[in-house]
């Protein structure tokens, strides 16, 4: 069983079982492949260099759309223009956080400085957003119901397995964020 992250003198430290490291690594890699651009890079090298993608459109997969949401509401044209200016670099930033996190998890125990812990918290959050989309969590009541799936004896099908994974990642992220908040208080 994983040990919750804690703020220690050496950094933010936690410990995971090999199976948990494999599971999280697979989830991070799945999301990286979802985030790799669907279309070939824009043919304009200057645009690509500054992170623009003149071909970008709102993602068709609802989970990807939650990772890369519209930055302007109730105005599709402005939302699309903003997406074309910013989405490529956002994808790259997320992919880089997910890659770093997969590597950082290989340590045993996992010891993170604040910057690494922030990347890990972002990566775990992206995992939760994607799992929540697959589980159809749309309201706080939906989220509440999932808490009932507590351990592997509750797993009956794919959905309850995903719920179990979601609850595990939630627990891990909460402990990481609490450690980050504690480390922040100690710094002041």
């Amino acid at each position: 069983m994983a040990k919750a992250f804690k703020s220690t003198r050496r950094g933010i430290s936690g410990s995971l079982e090999p199976g948990e490291v494999r599971l999280l690594g697979n989830l991070f890699r799945d999301i990286i492949s979802m985030l790799e651009p669907e279309t070939a890079a824009s043919s304009d090298p200057l645009a690509a260099m500054v992170g623009m993608d003149t071909e970008a459109v709102a993602p068709s997969d609802s989970a990807v759309r939650r990772l890369l949401p519209d930055g302007v509401r109730a105005n599709d044209d402005e939302a699309l223009e903003f997406r074309r200016l910013t989405e490529r670099s956002l994808r790259e930033q997320k992919i880089s956080a997910l890659r770093s996190s997969a590597l950082l998890l290989e340590g045993n125990p996992v010891v993170l400085n604040p910057g690494q812990a922030r990347l890990m918290a972002q990566a775990l959050n992206d995992v939760r957003l994607v799992l929540a989309d697959r589980l159809g969590i749309e309201t706080e009541d939906d989220a509440e119901k999932l808490h009932e799936v507590g351990d592997s004896s509750d797993v009956e099908d794919v959905e309850s397995y995903l719920a179990l994974v979601y609850n595990f990642v939630t627990w891990l992220q909460e402990s990481l964020v609490q450690a980050l908040l504690t480390a922040g208080r100690q710094k002041r």
């Binding site: 990772l67 890369l68 949401p69 930055g71 302007v72 910013t86 670099s89 956002l90 972002q122 959050n125």
Partner: peptide, 16 residues
């Protein structure tokens, strides 16, 4: 605009 993309990079849902 910068803040909005930053919120998205953390996974928060933001608009400007």
């Amino acid at each position: 605009e910068q803040d909005t993309v930053a919120m998205h990079s953390y996974g928060l849902w933001a608009t400007f």
